[in-house]
Write a protein that binds this DNA or RNA. Structure first.
Length: 286
DNA sequence: CACTGAGCCTGCTAGC
DNA sequence: TGCTAGCAGGCTCAGT
């Protein structure tokens, strides 16, 4: 399930190959992948444009196109955005999960594969991009995202901490895997109200988020099932996961007692009830 | 404002 | 062995 580190890895692998390439033709094999759902206008918006850059915003891949247009790609659960050299062209069978294909003038291609059809591709003009960008929250790896910012984010509202961290309009890029890992590291119970977390723990959470994301990027993401980079390689961060995916009763890597699996914000959540104690919610003054 | 649940999708697997 | 129910979950939208 691609989150920030996986999307960042896709961007890094695609960037050197896509920059400067001109989209000669776009072919949509599954119409609902493109938003809004109008294939001819989608094609018209991207064809004959040159890719000027590849960036990431939250969990979105953002391709800057000539003419101040941006194409955003969200992989959701099973999306893969892959680059193919011209000579590797038709190695895949026609009944695979190809949803959208961008063919470049030299015969190379950029293909969007997606088993579950949840992924979405949009084309935005500068005004739409500004709105889109504004809707998304803090980049957790932005140097301006300081512990004091996280403290404000948590204390300025009263929400279940995991639900808050999942909210992309607050912090952009975190998902189920890395949130469970970060809360475990910071020893915060996933159901803890956001305004009842001590400054010590907030600082720990800030460090945990950054370190976990950075080391996952270093390992080119977590591949549990479908995730692949822009060149088709799996990541290696799965070896570093300490709680995500563990069964109820599995030993906590820190204290050895049984982990627990539950549901928070409609997501499977794994935590250690011994290391991550739920503190009574008190009104936090000062 | 915060939260809940449905819907979107298909592959995989636990259990019968 | 073969079948099926349930699970995986990011995001949007409607309803409480």
């Amino acid at each position: 399930m691609p989150e920030l580190p996986e999307v960042e890895s896709v961007c890094r692998t695609l960037r050197p190959h896509l920059t400067g390439k001109k989209i000669a033709r776009a072919t949509v094999h599954w119409a609902r992948t493109v938003e809004p759902l109008v294939v001819p206008s989608f094609r018209r918006k991207v064809e004959d444009r040159t890719i000027a850059g590849v960036a990431r915003r939250g969990k979105y891949i953002v391709l800057s196109l000539s003419g101040d247009v941006r194409m955003t790609v969200h992989l959701r659960m099973t999306g893969e955005l892959r680059y193919f050299e011209s000579n590797s062209a038709q190695k895949t069978s026609p009944n695979d999960y190809l949803r959208v294909e961008f063919a470049f003038a030299g015969g190379e291609s950029l293909r969007f594969y997606d088993i579950r059809k949840f992924g979405r591709i949009r084309v935005l003009d500068s005004r739409e991009w500004a709105e889109f960008d504004q809707e998304l929250g803090w980049e957790p790896l932005d140097p301006d995202f300081r512990p004091s910012i996280l403290k404000h984010v948590l204390q300025s509202r009263r929400r279940i901490v995991k639900a808050l961290l999942l909210d992309q309009t607050v912090i952009a890029g975190l998902g189920n895997i890395y949130i469970d890992e970060a809360l475990f590291r910071a020893r915060i119970h996933p159901l803890q109200p956001s305004d009842s977390i001590s400054t010590v723990k907030i600082n720990r959470l800030h460090t945990a988020i950054r370190e976990i994301l950075n080391s996952a990027i270093d390992r080119r993401g977590t591949t549990l099932r479908n995730y692949r980079s822009g060149l088709g390689e799996p990541g290696e961060n799965q070896q570093l996961l300490r709680v995500y995916g563990s069964a109820t009763g599995a030993p906590c890597p820190r204290c050895g007692r049984g982990l627990r699996r539950t549901t928070v914000s409609q997501r499977t959540t794994t935590f250690c009830p011994n290391c991550q104690r739920l503190k009574p919610a008190r009104s936090n003054r000062r």
